[in-house]
Write a protein that binds this DNA or RNA. Sequence first.
DNA 1: CTGTTAGCGCCTTCAC
DNA 2: GTGAAGGCGCTAACAG
Lengths: 325, 325
Amino acid sequence: MATIKDVSRLAGVSVATVSRVLNQKGYVHEDTEKKVMNAIRELDYIPNDVARSLTKKSAKMLALLVPDITNPFFNELARAVEKVTQLYGYATILCNSDDTPANEKQYIHALKQKYIDGFILASNTLSAEEVQQLDVPVVTLDRTISDTIPTVASDNREGARQGVQFLLDRGCNKIAHIRGPQQLSIADERCQGYLDVVQETAWFSPDLIFEGNFNLNQATEAANRLLDRHPDLDGIFAGNDIMAMGALRAVQKRGIPVPDRMQIVGFDGISLGEMVYPELTTIAQSIYEMGLLAARMLIKMIERKPLDTMHYKLPVELIRRGTTR
Amino acid sequence: MATIKDVSRLAGVSVATVSRVLNQKGYVHEDTEKKVMNAIRELDYIPNDVARSLTKKSAKMLALLVPDITNPFFNELARAVEKVTQLYGYATILCNSDDTPANEKQYIHALKQKYIDGFILASNTLSAEEVQQLDVPVVTLDRTISDTIPTVASDNREGARQGVQFLLDRGCNKIAHIRGPQQLSIADERCQGYLDVVQETAWFSPDLIFEGNFNLNQATEAANRLLDRHPDLDGIFAGNDIMAMGALRAVQKRGIPVPDRMQIVGFDGISLGEMVYPELTTIAQSIYEMGLLAARMLIKMIERKPLDTMHYKLPVELIRRGTTR
DNA sequence: CTGTTAGCGCCTTCAC
DNA sequence: GTGAAGGCGCTAACAG
């Protein structure tokens, strides 16, 4: 593997000159540039990124921290992030935190030793101060840690409102909510949106809300309890699509026809929702867009370009499919 | 961020000595070792990976090339690979090839400039020679390129046989196969397994085999054609779970009861299969295991430890669920 | 415009 | 046992 020295020798110039043409920095005569270029081509020379990183203190790499890459939301995100980094000449390092703070910290410290340029935090167990003290650019997803840390998120509350309102409009008379984990802000926001719509109705009662932990099986169980307790239930709004699918399964198992006697709306818009029958009506986030945005923001920050917006709140979209009338 | 120099100064020794205790190499007096350790602790010193990479020509990173991280098979794989690398102090770089040779090549060259230690090739458009010439350790998944390149794969043909045989045993009288893309060896093997079982039956005809491209929608379409052409069809063996789900959807849409009038078996054992109703009967690969194995093998190769086996062919397991009687 | 030189942080002979 | 010095490959002043 040729080095810059080989090139300089072949071109009959100094390494500094080669470096200059490589980085298009400083003046260099057209003729010498050509000589250098030829030498580069002849030797198939490609600059060594590691050496470059050492001097630049930047590795052209960024890390994506997710709780679980197996979760459709996060792998769609990963897909987008990877796309952008690839495009801009960065590499993306994948980190599975399992939502464990210790893991996150370990990753972050390990990666800083590699001159990682920035982090996209989709997993998010770190406190505001911890993130602040990272002294590396960070973008967080779905959670505003502080005004100084850029975020991209969806309008969860408004989305939830739309979903529940839609159920109402389609004729539901009693709607339950299977919500995500306590203290996870997106779960709270969606639950809040549900409440915004139903709180004042005659039929509402707090035990229409069950915890499903963003998890299929727990949601199935929650749906079962719900059905036992409220035989007249005819609508379920789930805090995410996975839980909606869990509920759908429970409902189908009981032989209750969907959407005729039970309508279901999920949240996220993961492609999985189209794979079940009936296909899931859902409040779709632009997951891929969120990934693109987050990655582009981060790269801008790394390259010290100005950000147009610090906090993106993306609109969501109701996608009407088979689980509603 | 402290450097080795800071440590040496504080400990009153030379950098060489610090390096020695760091790498446990060469002799160093017990007392000086202690002094060094203390200095390290006091300064919270962590060696700089980039500098280390530059001299060692190894970055403690490996790359995972997949066609699409969004595919459940590959993200489960990624999960496993990441787990292992994390455990052994490596980082894993995620690469989405979209099954495009150009992309793969670009990734590989870019990463070699970063002193990537090895590749796990799950995406696989490269020819044998190209892989051979990489002069970096490689493990391939689901495809044997040459005897010198380690692989991990499932026993696809035997698995397919089991799946089809099971359909027969459960009373199917006419079984179709929706297969994966031509020229993809795993698709061929599974198709071959299907043929092994049905080829000699009275009802078999080649137009019971349709191409579904490992893709949900194409499989749905294939199932529709199949149902049009063979109204007496009562069993479908799909080349993977995604296609099985596509078929299931088509069948359900026509109001054909599953498993009573139609039974379906998939292949892969992705967790998605449990999310539909009825849940998918499938030939499960140990996807996570495959990932663990591949990563461990690769790391062994990188660290020049001997491999017990060059080619793993993992057993598969029939998981009996709701789409069969 | 171009070359010289001094790092970046670490590892590795080679003397002592 | 330990230290000095050179080198990994590249960038960034600073001269000229």
